[in-house]
Design a protein around this nucleic acid. Structure first.
Lengths: 212, 212, 212, 212
DNA sequence: AATGAATGAGAATTCATTCAT
DNA sequence: CATGAATGAATTCTCATTCAT
């Protein structure tokens, strides 16, 4: 990356006391930069500069650059899983649950595009010992959809060949939104959700679509 | 990355006879490493070591690290486009063309997972002046599908809300195979192709599926 | 060094009651660590962690890291000199004094191996303005032995070529114990003292040895 | 340490070709600096500056700072052992061998004070996995003397209580020369050797001393 | 007396690239 | 065509120290 940060450039030294939100700022800016340029292309200096702090200050809040990444990914995945737990319709049949999941997934992703993008793109940047924990969480989420598809297949409500494969295909498709969606484009948020929902539902053999 | 290679370590300098395929080896290993670890995480030394040559030797074949990336991406995209040109059924209707494209796309991706993955994941690593040329090629490909979907929508053969959005959704889904497919898994190549084909075709409102 | 200690890791801040012996703990742990790893290899954080306190707390007790070192060295050397003053046989002849010194020296060193080791090994780590004071103390001690040897040479009781050189040789030999002695080894404390005493006394031409 | 090294300060870029003696210079300067300031107090920049090269150039010759240290220590110890093998009188009795060893040891140490000092003072700076190899070499050397003393004790030629302890005591004493000897001092090289030899020989109960 | 947050300097090491051989 | 040596810039991280609370 590019921006220079040097002592004689910093004008407002910022009272520092009470500035405990530094860790939050670091998280936020790190996420933004990792998404924009990739984990490896972003330096600790870049992150510090974005927050208005020196490089070394980061180490008062995170043990390492890798720790920032892990913390971002982990908290994101745990949040998604928790959010789905609150959303899932306990009593619905497989078709209803599939639709619920698809709508939840798209909506959540459009609301948190950066978290999703990071968790998806930077798995490679995880060090070997940190990877399993994250993959475990990702698998939990994939399993949710796989199980719904499997039940829908057994009940005959869904046209599905292989639940595992199709779950992955669906997630890849839906996750793709984060790659290009920007507020204020040709289509509104709702239109995109509808479009993706129809595509996804059709892909598992559901044709009836009713806007959320 | 990891491997160490330094002058005082290498004993056998390798006879170099018929070593003019070095450039090919470099391309192949660079692709493999970029895919496995990411462009930024791979050093020229890593690439050289994988080929059994010193870093400086790379510069006899490529002007820079960025040039390797660009060359890999560009040749891949041109190859895909050329391959589709040879495959496309000139006289088919939109439904037939959609099915043809979908099958072509999945098949090609399963045959060249690394090229596809690279072109998809490392767009961010392109330097600003190299990016437009690659994006232009990618758009050409996306346009192929978008146009097919648009024609299918007009002809009423496909159930589609927005061709542009749905084209992206489809491509994201299909491209996803490269993320996890490994020869010798639970499902055979053909089964996966069938499964993806059905999912994709259903997603645009086509239900009749006949194995390739 | 190794141990990590950071704010977000420490849960129990420790009641701090009667914690005014902190300075003593700091001295003790600093000594231990300096001896084990060397002054430069030990960080203020290491010392603080060993005591169960934060780095910044150290500065309530010492002005700087260098100050800890100087204080440790200085108090050790003053203690040795004072201890010898209490031990020296005022009226003995050179031979008796030599034996007394040798026994005192070995015994003291075996009782305070870390202080001795530090004073010997970390002279290099003293900043230029702090060095002279310490060297002055060390020379006082060396002079004690040199003078005894010189008198013994004049009186003909000792076989000595050059008192200054031989004093250094003797001190180096005797100081060496601290390098390897560990309580509970093959030989007892007393056996080692006897062994060193005999070696040292023989080295100056005294053969009569009588256990302490 | 102190000296600044920056691009605009370097006047003579030095033709570089044929300058393969860089590694030797690095070894020499590293040794000098490690001895003068201690391993931890010397930076790679210091070493590079002393040789007239950039920091990064060092890594063309050594894998790490630790590697420089290990290489210096190892080659020194192997050289000493080899030198003693050439010196040792195969047929002499224990007393002759003891004298031969003592004279060899002092002489070698006065000729290579820096190597000896480094090997003695910086054992602590070895990383845990590099330590055993060096200690093994040191023990080989110590064993040489211990065996001679043991034989001398059995034959009754030497007055010795415990060969192992006394070997260590002797080596510590003799090694001490490197701590303070500087060419051109009050005593000549030969005088110091004689003085140390007498002290050492007396210490094992040998009185007859004949200058080399 | 202790802490958490901040800092500037500097540590070792890696990187892409150049160039004479 | 390949190499070893060199380089300057940049990397992550550690350090001793300060200071408001």
């Amino acid at each position: 990356m590019q921006v220079k940060e040097q002592s004689f450039m910093l004008e407002s030294p910022m009272p520092a006391h009470k500035a405990n939100h530094t860790k939050d700022s670091l998280r936020r800016e790190a996420l933004r930069l990792f998404v924009a340029f990739g984990y490896n292309a972003v330096s600790m200096r870049d992150i510090a500069a974005a927050v208005g702090v020196r490089q070394s200050a980061i180490y008062n809040h995170f043990r390492s650059k890798q720790d920032i990444l892990v913390e971002l990914m982990q908290s994101h995945m745990e949040t998604v899983l928790a959010a789905w737990q609150e959303t899932l319709p306990k009593d619905g049949d497989a078709a209803a649950q599939a639709e619920a999941f698809i709508r939840f997934h798209i909506t959540y992703h459009m609301d948190h595009p950066e978290d999703v993008f990071l968790a998806y793109m930077e798995l490679r940047s995880l060090e070997p010992d940190r990877k399993p924990a994250i993959l475990e969480l990702r698998d939990q989420y994939e399993t949710v959809l796989r199980d719904i598809l499997a039940r829908g297949r057994e009940s005959g409500q869904l046209h599905i060949i292989d639940p595992a494969t199709q779950a992955r295909a669906l997630l890849a498709m839906l996750t793709g939104v984060t790659g290009w969606f920007r507020e204020g484009g040709r289509l509104s948020r709702e239109e995109i959700i509808e479009c993706y929902a129809q595509t996804a539902l059709q892909s598992v053999g559901l044709t009836h679509v009713q806007g959320g």
